[in-house]
Structures are given as C-alpha cells and as structure tokens.
Design a binder for these strands. Structure first.
Lengths: 241, 241
DNA sequence: CCTCATCAGTTGTATAGACAACCGAAGCTG
DNA sequence: CAGCTTCGGTTGTCTATACAACTGATGAGG
C-alpha cells in the first residue's frame, strides 16, 4: 500500500491515492470521506499525516473540510473550455465603442493617487468617474470605471448621460481625436462586488485593462479601468499598420 | 504580543503580524525571513505553529519557502511588454532583471488543428514543440509551449538545446528578424500541473498569451502559447511605432 | 587549483498526545 | 411539544520530539 523511505512523502502518497479515488468516482460529489481517525487507522499513519493529505486535497479544490462534521467531496468544478468561437474579443488596436453599454453611476470625486498620476493632475483634484457595464448577447461581460479630469470637462456627467458614449462626450468638448497611450493588462481574482457586477462566479478570474487615453497633443483625457469576465472575453493585440 | 485563548488561533495572529510586516516594507523583496527556529523562539510558540503561519503566507503569494535555505519575500510584479517586437530576455534585461530559461521538453509531434491553422500548415504535419520555463531573478514567471514547422527547421531540437533561445535558434536557420502578428490574451485558472510549473498557488489565475511570429515575408515561423503567473507579471501593450 | 567529504544550519516529514471548538442527535425538563 | 442540556464524534490548534533531506561553506587531499 504505502511505502516508507522511498523518497516520496507518505502524505503525498495518500494524497495521490485519494485523488484518484475521488476523480475515478470511488467517492461521488457530496459524499463524506471517512473521518481522519478512521483514515489514519486504515493507512496506518498518524492523524497529522492524514490531515496534511486532506489539506492538499482541499487546496486542489477536490474536497471541502467542515469543522465538526467531516470532509466532503466537492461538486466537480465546471471547467469552461477555452473555445475559440464563443468568446468575445476586445481589440486593443481599435478604438470603438462597446455596444450594450449600461451607465451605472456618474459622480464627481477627488482623485486618489493612482488616478491622479495617470491623468497627470494633483491628487485630490476633482475627477468625474463614470461606471458602466457592458453586455453582449444578454450577458454581462465587462465592468468599467472611467475617470476624466473635471477641470477640463465641466458638466461631463450631464453630457455623458445625453450622449451615452465616451467618444461623443469628448467630441462635445472639442476632442475629435484621442488615442490609447499604454495599456496594462493584469489578471486577478475578483472582489465580491466585482463578481456580482460581472454576474460571474467568485472563483473565476477577471481580465483587467488599465489604459490612459490622450488627445492629439498628448494630454491625458481619460483613465479607464475595465474588468472583463475572463470566461467570455479575450483581448486581441494587433500591431497597427 | 500574542494573546492565547481569545478565539483567534496563534498561527493566524502570527500570519497577520508577518503579513503587515512584509507589506509595510519591514522586510523588502528578496529578503530572507528569520529561520523557523528563530521565529518560534521570538514568538514563544512551537516551530509547527510558525510553519502553519508560513504556509499561509506562501499560499498568499507573499513569500516562497526553499528547502534547506529559508523563506524569502517575493518580489513585485514584472512588466511584460507586448509589441510587434517582443523578445523574452530583452524585455527582462531592460528592466534590470536576470532572465533565465529552462528547457523542459522538446519533441516532434503532429500538429493539432489549432496549431496547424496558426502556422498555416496541414493538420498532421510534423511540428517541433518546445516547452520551457522562463525565470526572472531566479523566480518562475512563465511556462511556454512553442511550435515550429519542422519542414522549415529540421534539427531544431538540437539547435535549440545549444542556443537556448528562440531568437538565436531562428537566426541559425537564417531568420534574422521576426515580428509578432497578432496576440490573443486570455486569463483562466491554472491546472494543477501548470501551477506546479509556474511555482504559484493553485488559486491564483494565469495570464495567457497566444501569438504567431512571422518572418520578414510574413510566413509564420513560430506559434507560442505562454502562461504567465498573474501575481508577478503584468502585460504592457504599447502602440507600435 | 580542483574535487570531494564533512558539517552546521535550514526546511520537510512523521509520530504522539492533549485539549479546544464545533456539530448533531439523543434525552431531559418544563 | 419547545427548549435546553448532555454527550459522543468530528475537525482545529498547539506542543514536543526525532530524524530525513537539502544548502552552502569550509577544509582536507589529490
């Protein structure tokens, strides 16, 4: 059964044994595993060694351990296939309005240091923050916050409400052309609030783009942080010709 | 310092104390923490209690623990620019990081439909697949699979072993310059194997880039799928000049 | 100079025991 | 019957000890 002193730790052997037992269907989803005491007797090891193996299984997401109740096999995680067809594409090389944009909030606030640095203004200066969500095929796919320096665009909130688009709003203020300066792409787990806004499970990561748009003279006009549901969105980068 | 019997486990108190100490800069990136023995003396607890706290810090991605050496504070994020000319080691040395590349596997296989389409060859044609891991300052940051059409580059495996770099390998075959055609960026949770290769916690997402490199005439020479540890790598997209 | 063995210091594994915290069911009490 | 207590079984924490495995430096021997 287990072999001692062969270079493979006992808890690893137990972990791998139970792993195959679970994934091969020996224990079904929701089943309760034997108690730590029973397992330690069955494998002939100390209870702590069993606990080490169980901790690893929990980290793998195969089981969940409940205080005073026992260890239970988790429902198999839905593994979203990376199908190349069903994904929406966000093309960074193009400047186009995302369809299905929903205005969630528009307020004037003081710029925190990060926003201030991006827009090249003083921290604490007033900026207009517009929060909106993007939908496609009835599915929430993005959640974005855009920051505009208010000194440059007074009354932006009202204009945005009327026009409903960043491009048209900026044009109203005389900015006919603007371009993306640099985009930073990161991935992380969502906060509870972000997961709710994106209508996606908390365990799925989000793709985030942070970008600064500048006008023709190179002056920052918008700083945007956009969260994408990673299950549905891919980002494309194409070198411009 | 620590309070016993107040409902909060000792290891949690230690974990949170060390967490703030690290993020507040008490220990800098790359610094070695005191040994488990010293910490156990300092906090007045058993070594195993310290180990529990360190394990949690490691899961958080704040430290890494190395057998026989010690625990080290992880370093901050790395910026990985994606542009028409993207070269792994160039990117890193420009940020004064020490690049490293480890060849994990090199085999000739038949192209699956996805690879074939990307390289514009017949499905089933033989391609050379090179799997390697990228490092910066000794830390794993990427895990990549690169596909090359074998018809165009016979004996690629041997050449790659000798040169250890995509750029130098292609140069050996007369490709002096190549550029990135299109990059697709997605995010998802890693498989157990991917997390292991990236030496990152299983609950942290990975950033993935898929790109095709073409030679001066526009013929595909390489298709690459590169996984980045999202905790430590950000992708930068700059408008191409 | 290079190679190898050794050694102190470090983390990893395994064992053992004790008690706390929690859960659920069974039994008691009004 | 509702509410409460008790109790056995479970997981969580902490301590203690011992040894294995690994790392890096030091020094002996060629």
């Amino acid at each position: 059964m287990l072999s001692r002193g062969n270079g493979v730790a006992l808890w690893r052997q137990i972990h791998s044994k139970m792993e195959t037992e679970i994934s091969s269907g020996g224990y079904g989803p929701g089943d309760r595993l034997p108690s730590e005491n029973e397992l330690s007797g069955r494998f002939g090891v100390n209870r702590h060694t069993i606990r080490r193996a169980l901790a690893a299984l929990e980290e793998d997401g195969l089981i969940r351990v409940e205080h005073g109740r026992g260890s239970f096999v988790r429902e198999p995680v839905i593994h979203y296939p990376v199908s190349r067809r069903t994904r929406f594409s966000e093309n960074l090389s193009r400047q186009r309005r995302r369809p299905g944009s929903i205005l969630l909030m528009a307020v004037d606030i003081e710029a925190d240091p990060m926003v201030a640095e991006a827009l090249d203004i003083e921290p604490g200066a007033v900026v207009t923050r517009i929060t909106n969500a993007g939908e496609a095929d009835g599915r929430r796919i993005s959640y974005a916050k855009s920051y505009f320096p208010r000194a440059q665009f007074p009354g932006m909130v009202r204009v945005y409400r009327e026009t409903g688009s960043v491009t048209r709003t900026l044009r109203h203020f005389g900015i006919d052309d603007y371009s993306r300066k640099r985009t930073r792409i990161i991935a992380r787990m969502p906060t509870v609030e972000e997961a709710r806004e994106l209508e996606q499970p908390k365990k799925r990561p989000v793709l985030i783009t942070e970008s600064v748009n500048v006008d023709a003279r190179g002056v920052p006009v918008e700083f945007g942080i956009c969260l994408f549901a990673s299950d549905w969105v891919q980002i494309l980068v194409e070198p411009s010709e």
